[in-house]
Structures are given as structure tokens and as C-alpha cells.
Nucleic acid binder design. Structure first.
Lengths: 195, 195
DNA sequence: ACCTGAACACCGTTCAAGT
DNA sequence: ACCTGAACACCGTTCAAGT
């Protein structure tokens, strides 16, 4: 399953690293639609070199996201040891939000990767789905989460919230409110003894 | 407030209508990023003509959305006469979802228009916000909706759900599940006597 | 007053030539 | 084996020339 990639020539490795660093900066500053030409220029390489290393924008994105993905997995580990399954689920979704906000506009390619088996982002999507599955099942088992909800739906809802959150900062709303909305919904039972 | 636009020359009016019809078709078929060049060609006009009538993509979009917007307002009227304020709020949000699914990708420019006072879509955004305000307030007054929720947040959440819904059709999830998730949240109180 | 379509700009992507 | 950068393609946008 694991491919043994032959080691790169020294200059190729150097170029790859430069591209990766520059891409991370540009994606962070201008969002995931940052110009690939600019990234190549910023890294001091020809555009062809960028394409040789990363044949698609998604491939470059995926490589650039590696650190964030590791943090996400670490957060999952941390959530696992929480006593309360509902708290664990919430902590996991919080971490997922943080990950999805790594770059402006990231939710879109991630959503696209869910159906595209091919995408370099697809692997991380499957991982996220299975982790969501795990935390959700635990919460459901104890009656803390909605029964007729599947991991996929919850992942999608998280993507949705992350998508608006990207734009929302300058908009008077806070992410906490949106996270809260996702957790509890906008409806309340007629008897206001709930909260 | 209402501007008196001088009547168009006959051929100009004809071109405008053609552009509008063609644009509606293309937006419906390929989403809101449909090529403007293609639309001009399809309408049998030069690209300059398209830009003369609709200086920005958003202007064309807004004009194309007029019918859907009228349907949305009609749905609001219909929701007003519902007895139960929670049902009215749900009906309104359902209609809003339908509107936002008029074209694939519509949520993005609508979201952008919320902060851009300039955008041709901004007027409809204000209308939507004030209607959401109204339905939400009614539901809150009777204890049916979360107190610490503002219309803006709810609008944003609706946009978020519509955004995923655009892509979701071929994805095994249903829009109902997402709407439900927004209404009730993913969490359940420890005592499973709720549902 | 309005229309046309060539011209320009921008950017992603490829590939022949070079090391 | 890898890199460079010119060349091509595509599309949005403008504007001089035409009716």
C-alpha cells in the first residue's frame, strides 16, 4: 500500500520544499485560489517545476495541509480520552472546524474530494469520516446524540459551518454561535425549561 | 427611491430579454460561474452588449433571480398565516433553502452580498434578513426558538446548508437530514425521552 | 443610442530546449 | 533527471469603429 518513492535529487528536493513553503504562505494570505504562477515565482522556480512536483492544485493543497492534518489527528486522540462522549464529539467537531479554517476557502475542495475518489484530499476525508463515525456512535450509544444522524451528514454540516465561518469574521457573527447552532439547533421545545 | 428608467429602444429591449433568458438557462445548467462569453453568444449578442446591460456578473445574476425572489416573498406571506410560530419559522427557512438552490453555487455570491452594500444582490439580502428577523422573533416570543440567536446567524446557517446541499444530491445524504440538523442540532439531552 | 467583435489582460497548463 | 520560460488556451473586460 505504501509506495516507496525514490529519493529526490538534492536540487529537486530543495525546490519542492521552497514551493511548499511559498504555497503555504500564499494559501494562508489569499486563500486556496492563490495564483499558482505567483507561487512558482515566489519560490523562485519555473511554473513547469511546480507542475512537475504537484500536477494539480489539489495535490499542492494536500501537501501543504500535512501539518494541519497531523494536528487534527492529535486533537482526535485528545478527544478520545474525555470522559463524556458528548464532550468528546464536541471537541472533535471543534478541532475539525479549526482544521477546515487552515486556509480560506478550504471547505470547497474538501467537499469536492468526498465524492472524487481520485483527489489527493480524499484520503483525509475518509479519515475524518471514520473518526466522526466513531465519536458520533459513542455519543449515540449513550443517548447524547441524535439517533438518525450519520457521520457523513455531520461532516457535511461541519463543512457548511466552516464555509460561512471563513467569511464571517468581519460580519458581526461569531463562530461560537454557529457551532452552538449546529449542536442544539434553532428550535426549542415549547416548555422553556431546557436551557 | 424608485428610479424612473427611460424606456429602452426596441432592439435593446429585445437583446436584454434574450440575454436574461439565455443567462437563466446557463446558470441553471452550469451554475453561477457559467461563462459570460457563452451567454452572450447563446443570446446572439456581442459580449460588449452583455456588459452594457449588466456591468457585473452579480447584476446579471440579480436580474435573473427576480422570479425566484418573488416566489420567496410569496412563500413568506404563506408562512405568515400559519398558526404555530415554530412552523412558520420552519416554513420560511424551507422556502429560503428552495430559493438558494435556484442555481448551483448561488449561496457564495449571496454571502458576499451581505457585507457588500454595493452588490445588486444586497437588497434581497436585507429583505431576507428582515423576514428572518420577523419569523425568529415570533418563535422566540413563545419560547419555541433559541433566545440567544439573531436573524443574521440564522441566515448564515441557512446559507451554509444550502451551500452543501448544492453538491450533496449525488452524495447519499438528503437535504431533509441537513434541515433537521439545523432545526434540532446533533446533541440530545442525556435523558432519551425527547424524540 | 446601441451594437459588434477585435484587442488586451490574466492565468492555468504544456512542452521544446537546455543543464 | 530535472529545470526553465516561451507558447498556447481560455475567459473576462474594454473600446474603437460601425449602424
Amino acid at each position: 500500500m505504501v509506495q516507496d518513492v525514490p529519493p529526490l535529487r538534492a536540487d529537486a528536493q530543495r525546490n519542492r520544499d521552497r514551493i511548499l513553503n511559498t504555497a503555504a504562505q500564499h494559501f494562508a494570505a489569499r486563500g486556496i485560489d492563490a495564483s499558482l504562477e505567483d507561487i512558482a515565482k515566489g519560490a523562485g522556480v519555473g511554473s513547469g517545476t511546480l507542475y512537475r512536483h504537484f500536477p494539480t492544485r489539489d495535490a499542492l493543497l494536500a501537501a501543504t495541509l500535512r501539518k494541519s492534518q497531523e494536528q487534527l489527528l492529535a486533537a482526535a486522540e485528545a478527544a478520545r480520552v474525555l470522559h463524556h462522549p458528548a464532550a468528546a464529539l464536541q471537541a472533535w467537531l471543534k478541532a475539525l472546524q479549526t482544521y477546515l479554517r487552515t486556509f480560506n476557502g478550504l471547505p470547497a475542495p474538501v467537499l469536492a474530494a468526498i465524492k472524487e475518489e481520485q483527489s489527493p484530499l480524499a484520503v483525509s476525508c475518509q479519515k475524518v469520516t471514520s473518526l466522526t463515525e466513531e465519536f458520533l456512535a459513542q455519543a449515540q450509544k449513550n443517548g447524547h446524540a441524535c439517533e438518525r444522524l450519520c457521520a457523513n451528514d455531520l461532516f457535511l454540516a461541519a463543512l457548511a459551518m466552516a464555509w460561512v465561518a471563513n467569511h464571517v469574521d468581519a460580519l458581526g457573527s461569531s463562530c461560537e454561535t454557529l457551532d452552538d447552532l449546529l449542536a442544539h439547533g434553532y428550535l426549542r421545545s415549547p416548555c422553556p425549561t431546557q436551557d
